[in-house]
Amino acid sequence: MVLTKQKIEHVAMLARLKLDDEETELFSEQLNSILAYVEKLDDLNTEGIEPLVHVLPINNVFRDDVARPGMPREELLANATMVEEGQFKVPRIV
């Protein structure tokens, strides 16, 4: 699989990254080389093997449904750029 320039731009857009031409070029080389490496896995015969959904052989890790206090609001908002009425204030969205 080869990542085209368009693909790189699309992925950058999804990640909200602004790339200039030089970076697009550089990352496309790097990403392609990483993907080429991972593609080695295609050489394996996976016939009859269930897809892996988790690397650890464990399941059903649960907690009981008991409510406890969270963190103090001041602490939660301590790193916020803007705060108003006890809430995070963010620029317009749409």
Binding site: F62, G70, R73
Partner: peptide, 29 residues
């Protein structure tokens, strides 16, 4: 373990997990 009660003061039922703080790990209810 944060409460799900409706109508509380804003941001008073929040912890590192549901605030999406790095490193906080979820455990299913």
């Amino acid at each position: 373990s944060c409460s799900t009660a409706f109508g509380a003061e804003p941001n008073t039922q929040v912890c590192p997990v549901c605030a999406g703080m790095p490193g906080a790990l979820p455990v299913l209810n």
